[in-house]
Amino acid sequence: MLKAKVTVTLKKSILDPQGSAVEKALKSMGYPVDEVRIGKYMEVTLPEAARGNATEMMHEICRKLLSNPVIEDYRFELEDKE
């Protein structure tokens, strides 16, 4: 089996109000942070038979369901599931 570790974040050009709120809170607590951006993390398990086209399949899954390509970027890593 394969495990895809997917991270989805807002594009840099998109305002991130949740990230801004966390940034302000951290600064008010005395932490010297420059910027905070909030994202999503997902794990997708694929059958061993998908190994040949796993990268292509994950790009399709991310574009069609896990992210909104207009406002979000995604990245993923594939690894063998133990």
Rank of each mutant, 00 (worst) to 15 (best):
M1K: 07
K3W: 01
K5P: 06
K5R: 10
K5W: 09
V6L: 07
V6W: 03
V6E: 08
T7W: 12
V8C: 04
V8D: 08
T9E: 06
T9A: 03
T9P: 02
L10R: 01
S13T: 13
S13D: 13
I14C: 03
I14K: 00
I14S: 02
L15I: 09
D16C: 00
P17W: 01
Q18A: 04
Q18E: 08
G19E: 02
A21N: 10
V22T: 01
V22F: 06
V22C: 01
E23Q: 14
K24R: 14
K24Q: 13
K24F: 13
A25Y: 03
L26V: 06
L26G: 04
L26S: 04
K27R: 14
K27C: 06
S28I: 02
M29D: 08
M29W: 02
G30I: 08
G30N: 10
V33E: 07
D34V: 00
D34K: 08
D34E: 15
E35A: 11
V36Y: 02
V36H: 12
R37Y: 03
I38R: 13
I38D: 02
G39Q: 00
G39I: 01
K40E: 12
K40S: 00
M42Y: 14
M42D: 02
M42R: 15
E43S: 10
T45K: 06
L46N: 08
P47K: 11
E48Q: 09
E48V: 10
A49F: 12
A49C: 09
A50S: 06
A50P: 00
A50T: 09
R51K: 15
R51E: 14
G52I: 11
G52F: 12
N53G: 13
N53W: 11
N53D: 14
A54E: 07
A54C: 07
T55C: 03
E56T: 12
M57G: 07
M58C: 01
M58F: 03
M58A: 01
H59E: 15
H59I: 02
E60H: 14
C62Y: 00
C62A: 00
C62E: 04
R63L: 11
R63D: 12
K64V: 08
K64R: 13
K64D: 03
L65E: 04
L65N: 05
L66S: 04
S67C: 03
S67P: 03
N68V: 05
P69V: 14
P69E: 12
V70R: 08
V70I: 14
I71W: 06
E72Q: 11
E72L: 04
D73K: 03
Y74T: 08
Y74R: 08
R75I: 06
R75F: 15
F76C: 07
F76K: 12
L78W: 08
L78T: 10
L78V: 11
E79K: 14
E79G: 15
E79W: 05
D80G: 05
K81A: 04
K81C: 05
E82H: 06
E82K: 13
